[in-house]
């Protein structure tokens, strides 16, 4: 019993010490939302905090919808959303575009199709084109891979292509990474992911004859692009403004670029 008590006391002391380690006087900024932008925001926050001792930034995921909700309710000073069109409830928020992200359509390297028109992409994902033959490929049935309902990547994709009502046959995967794995394992699939996560295991298809490259996205020739927004309630102020300014600064934009996203302008 006695030993147990001592153990407890020691445990509590350790917890207390750890809790005491946080920066006491720092201004707290919470950033929440898009899981696609979260890893980038974390790195940017890390760099920012290295320069500014008086600010403490916590970055949370939860998805674009949650980012909008959190910014509105004030649980986060900054919401992250990567949607082509912000929903009506985000109208009251001030949005700052901090990056752009291309969505690459991917197929297995062995798939013969190299170019798809927007019309064909729509047909494939709606389930009206069921055979690769109809899109200029081999005589094989098409398997569509998409993200779960509510995903920012999925809604951006569906909005930029337009008129998509996803076929019930579609396989659903819950992250960019698992979509890539699924497509890399099956020659008859087609999926989409953020172009920063392309790898040699899959091949990006040209859309309307345009390759999904950084240059094509920057010049506006590649169509499937979505913006990344940072949202604040009212004009950003204080530490939140400083952080957004840092993200937009040449240094911040350079980092965004080096991580595979595209700068805002």
């Amino acid at each position: 019993m006695k030993r147990f008590m001592i153990g407890m006391a020691m445990g509590l002391t350790v917890v207390g010490l750890l809790a005491g380690c946080g920066r006491q006087s720092a201004a707290l900024v919470t950033v929440a939302g898009s899981t696609a932008f979260q890893p980038f925001a974390e790195k940017l926050a890390e760099q920012f905090m290295a320069m500014r001792n008086d600010v403490n930034i916590t970055v949370q995921g939860g998805g674009s919808a949650l980012g909008i909700q959190a910014a509105r309710s004030g649980t986060a000073q900054i919401g992250m959303a990567d949607l082509v069109q912000l929903p009506p409830e985000a109208a009251e928020l001030v949005s700052t575009t901090v990056a752009r992200d291309g969505l690459a359509l991917i197929v297995h390297p062995a798939n013969g199709v190299t170019n798809l028109s927007i019309e064909q992409v729509r047909g494939l994902f709606n389930g009206t084109l069921k055979n690769w033959k109809e899109a200029g490929g081999a005589d094989q049935s098409v398997r569509v891979v998409s993200r779960e309902a509510g995903s920012g990547t999925r809604s951006s994709f569906e909005q930029t292509v337009g008129g998509i009502r996803l076929t019930a046959e579609a396989i659903i995967q819950d992250s960019n990474g698992t979509i890539r794995e699924t497509v890399a394992n099956d020659p008859n699939t087609i999926g989409y992911l953020t172009h920063g996560l392309l790898s040699e295991k899959v091949r990006a298809v040209r859309v309307d004859g345009v390759d999904c490259t950084e240059a094509a996205i920057l010049e506006g020739r590649y169509k499937l692009v979505r913006p990344v927004f940072l949202l604040t309630k009212g004009a950003p102020g204080g530490a939140a403004k400083d952080f957004i300014d840092y993200v937009l600064s040449p240094e911040g934009q350079g980092m965004i670029r080096s991580y595979g996203l595209l700068p805002a302008k």
Partner: peptide
């Protein structure tokens, strides 16, 4: 599990 992360309101 797939949709809980994003779901709000009625969803």
């Amino acid at each position: 599990a797939l949709e809980m992360g994003y779901a709000t309101g009625q969803h």
